[in-house]
Design a binder for these strands. Structure first.
Lengths: 209, 209
DNA sequence: GTCTATAGAAAGATAGAC
DNA sequence: GTCTATCTTTCTATAGAC
């Protein structure tokens, strides 16, 4: 969850990280508007005034919570694992598998993305951009895979990218409502098979120590 | 939007309906937590104290807003138009087409369903039940259509039902973020075609007055 | 049925002591 | 860097006049 080697973090950086962890967990549980800075500060073990020493306001705190998670995903999405079209799909399907181990973070995205469709929401621009990046990567991957598939399935790569992202998002809501009844990973891999693609989507072994 | 012939409504019933209309619109625009009873009352042309004469509290107001919309859909989903499997799909795809004309209501569902994954949310039980009903109807329809399709596509009807609902939900978020860039109806009908079904999903003419 | 007035709680944010 | 104390606003909800 933290970003740097803890040994090299100052006390302030550690407090900041603790605040971000708490904000992530509470936003995940209840959304943005339903959580107060006092809640977050108490969870992180300080007062809300202490919290505001590290972050200028609630909105900025949300943006940083989202940004921190996103940096992890972006590294995966543009890293060495996505040099091939199969790699891109493997990585995205890997997000789904990973998400099934972190209901809190999934809750964060479901709640905040729902709130963020309002243009004045502090995370609106963030989500517009996030979909754009994921869509572009997936569109390129589908284009390559459809072109080399036999027989060519004749789907629109951009549409397939949008459908896959929509499927992933919609499954998250159903999974959060009834975790035991929904296998998001199975539903996503089945969709890719329905597109006429026969890929090995076994995830790469996790990098490093 | 209103439910009864306006001529037979008392003044109180009319006010109640106006409040529900306003609550629907404002919840749609900004979600549950971000809207106050004062906002809703002002939009309906009375004070928040006047509003509370008609509804016991904010949560009950939300439940009634959702229930009113649902009664309309339930009538369609179990009405004469869904006597056949094709009719069920036609009706559900019709929901998508209708939704593209009412971004406000779509916003309501995206925001409230996102918030409602928390078990203590006033609309939690509502959404669990809503998915169950839609899933059951769609599973039955897919089972019949897969069985009679040539060649039989060999998909799991229950999984396809879940995928279709997830796709519809996920598309709504993308559509609300960028309305002009997303054609929900096209994406949904394409998905049904990808399942190996070749159906005429032209909507039935709306039932007359 | 709707209002004014207000209670009481909680929110985000700031000032200044330590 | 963190605290207490406080300001200001806004919220849900209630009481009682009209």
């Amino acid at each position: 969850m933290t970003e740097q080697s803890p040994r090299r973090m100052t006390k302030g950086e550690r407090t900041r990280a603790r605040i971000l962890d708490s904000a992530t967990e509470l936003f995940s549980r209840s959304g943005f508007h339903a959580v107060s800075l006092r809640d977050i500060a108490a969870h992180a073990g300080l007062t809300h005034a202490g919290l505001l020493h590290h972050f200028p306001g609630k909105e900025e705190l949300l943006v940083q919570v989202l940004g921190r998670r996103d940096r992890v995903d972006a590294r995966l999405l543009f890293g060495p694992g996505t040099a091939t079209p199969e790699g891109v799909l493997r990585t995205v399907v890997g997000f789904v598998a990973r998400n099934m181990t972190t209901p809190g973070l999934v809750g964060l995205y479901v709640k905040i993305s729902g709130e963020s469709v309002a243009p004045e929401h502090p995370a609106h621009a963030y989500f517009v951009d996030r979909y754009r990046v994921l869509r572009e990567q997936l569109t390129g991957a589908f284009a390559a895979l459809f072109a080399r598939a036999d027989p060519p399935p004749g789907h629109d790569p951009a549409l397939a990218a949008r459908q896959l992202l929509a499927l992933m998002d919609g499954l998250q809501t159903q999974w959060l409502l009834e975790p035991d009844a929904v296998d998001m990973h199975a539903a996503v891999t089945a969709f890719i098979r329905q597109l006429g693609l026969d890929l090995d989507l076994t995830p790469e072994p996790a990098p490093g120590p």
